[in-house]
Amino acid sequence: NKASVVANQLIPINTALTLIMMKAEVVTPMGIPAEEIPKLVGMQVNRAVPLGTTLMPDMVKNYE
C-alpha cells in the first residue's frame, strides 16, 4: 500500500503548506501520494483541513 499525505495539524484556509504540516500515512481512500510532499510545499489549501485529514487533490490550489 502506498502512503498518502495527511494533515499533521489543523491547516487554516489559504495557508501555504510547509513540511511540518504534513505526514505520510497509509489511508483509505488514498489521497495525494506521499512522494508529492516536496511539490506541495508552498502551495495553498483552498479550505480548512482538520488534523488527521487526508489531503485530496481538490483541497490544494493549482495542484495537478
Rank of each mutant, 00 (worst) to 15 (best):
T53S: 14
T28Y: 11
E25L: 08
V27R: 13
M21H: 05
Y63G: 06
L55E: 01
K61F: 10
E25I: 06
M43P: 00
G42V: 02
N1I: 12
V5Y: 01
L40Q: 01
D58G: 06
N1H: 12
V41N: 05
V5F: 01
M21S: 07
K23W: 05
I13V: 06
E36I: 08
A7G: 13
D58T: 05
A24M: 06
P29V: 07
E35W: 05
P57K: 06
T18H: 07
G31F: 02
V41A: 09
M21A: 06
N46D: 05
G42S: 10
L55K: 01
Y63V: 12
E35A: 04
E25D: 06
V45F: 02
K2S: 10
G52T: 03
A48E: 13
V45K: 00
L19S: 11
M59T: 05
T53Q: 11
L55D: 00
Y63H: 13
P57V: 07
A16F: 10
G42D: 09
M22R: 00
V45C: 02
L19N: 07
E35D: 11
L17N: 00
N62E: 10
V45E: 00
T18V: 04
T54P: 14
A3M: 14
D58R: 13
A3G: 15
M43E: 07
P12Y: 11
M59F: 11
V49Q: 03
M21N: 12
N14A: 10
G42Y: 15
V41K: 12
A48K: 09
M59A: 10
P12A: 10
A48R: 11
P57L: 07
D58M: 09
R47Y: 15
K61R: 05
A16L: 09
Q44W: 10
T28W: 15
P38R: 08
T28K: 15
D58N: 13
T53W: 15
E25W: 12
K39F: 06
E64F: 05
T15K: 11
K2V: 13
Y63Q: 08
A48M: 13
A3W: 02
M59L: 09
N14D: 14
T15H: 10
V45G: 01
T53M: 07
V27P: 05
M21W: 07
S4G: 09
K2G: 08
L17T: 01
I11C: 02
Y63M: 04
L17S: 00
M43Y: 07
P50Q: 14
T15C: 03
I20Q: 15
Q44Y: 11
M59Q: 03
I11T: 01
T54Q: 07
E64K: 02
V26K: 15
K2C: 03
L19G: 11
A34V: 12
L55R: 00
V5D: 01
L19P: 07
L19R: 06
E64D: 14
I37V: 07
V41S: 10
T53D: 06
P38N: 07
K39Q: 15
L40S: 01
N62V: 05
P29G: 10
K2Y: 15
